[in-house]
Simulated scan of single mutants.
Amino acid sequence: MNPNGIILSIVFFSHTAVGVLGNAFLVCLFFCMFFIGHRLRPTDTILAQLACFNFLFLLSKGIPQTMAALGLKNFLDDNGCITVFYLHKVSRGLSLSITCLLSGFQAITISPSSSKWAEVKARAPKYIVPTSSLCCVTHLLLNIIVFVKVKDPQSSRNSSELHDYGFCSGLESNKVRDALFGVVVSLRDAVFVGLMVFASGYMILLLHRHHKRNQHLYMTSLSPTASPRARATQSILLLVSTFVCFYSLNSILISYMYFREPRLWLIQCSAFLSICFPTFSPFVLISSDSQLLKYYYDLWGKKVPHL
């Protein structure tokens, strides 16, 4: 067996396993807190969904890539390959959408109550579930094209129209249709990323104004600490920044591959970048959002340490 393939499979597997455990921890934590009747923040609903979709993304992307790195390219038939690829596409799109929803909701939450967003601010929590449900339906329908574009790797042996993507192959039967679909997906992603950047910039501006307004309090206080809302906002900003960073790098690589015949190492690099955010996101939240640790200690009846 190729030593490079073994090393690559270990990297993919360890990366995927860490991410799966991190997201599973968050999902179980939110579920348990909800089950025992603990009062949760509105953003926790979004974070729970994000963890679920990241968990699904890692299973549908990381595990097949691990097996493909070992040279097991024929372990899926048509139906299996289509199902895995469809789940991968849907969960990727939902991860993007829910991250955008999270940044937008938090921007509305910390906006001044006297502003024109006051009415929207009061109603925003009621629209979280309907909005996320609409995102789910949209991505489920948008990615139906996967059922006609994807084949199992064995098909690539007898067809020059198939391009190998590791554990599945993409069928380019209609270049015009594929180009139009690519434009639609790219525009969708660009809109969501643009909204995230705009919301993040708005939150940074509000935090800066808040810091300047209360600077004299920080100077006189012996142990100045940020408010819970400010800490939650900083946590979400860090999460969004992580997403935009990895997404931008992967988009540049995918754009390069679009105009050239995809090489195996480029496909592997793109696959690795795509699972970086789902892997790191739960640990970014756990390390930066003190409320999550409070949930954990409350769940086990332990004394909460000073955070």
Rank of each mutant, 00 (worst) to 15 (best):
F147C: 09
L134R: 00
P112G: 02
S155Q: 11
K212G: 01
V185S: 05
V185A: 08
A226G: 01
L187K: 01
E161W: 04
S173I: 14
H211Y: 14
A122M: 08
I204K: 04
G194N: 09
S113K: 13
I108E: 01
H211V: 05
L142G: 00
I110K: 02
S113N: 12
W117A: 08
D189Y: 08
F198M: 12
G194M: 09
A199Y: 11
H208W: 14
Y202D: 04
S200W: 04
N174E: 05
F181M: 09
W117C: 02
I204P: 00
H210A: 10
C136S: 08
M196L: 08
L195V: 13
S133K: 00
K149N: 13
C168P: 00
D189N: 12
L205T: 10
S186T: 14
S132G: 02
E119T: 11
A199M: 09
A122L: 11
P112E: 06
K126T: 06
F105T: 00
V185K: 05
D178K: 09
T225W: 01
S156Y: 03
A124D: 02
S114H: 09
C168Y: 13
I145V: 15
S155R: 12
I110V: 15
C168D: 02
K151A: 09
A199P: 04
I110E: 04
F198L: 15
K116R: 07
K121P: 04
D152S: 15
S133E: 00
P125H: 04
N174K: 05
L205Y: 15
A190V: 09
I128W: 03
M203F: 06
N143P: 08
H163D: 10
M219D: 12
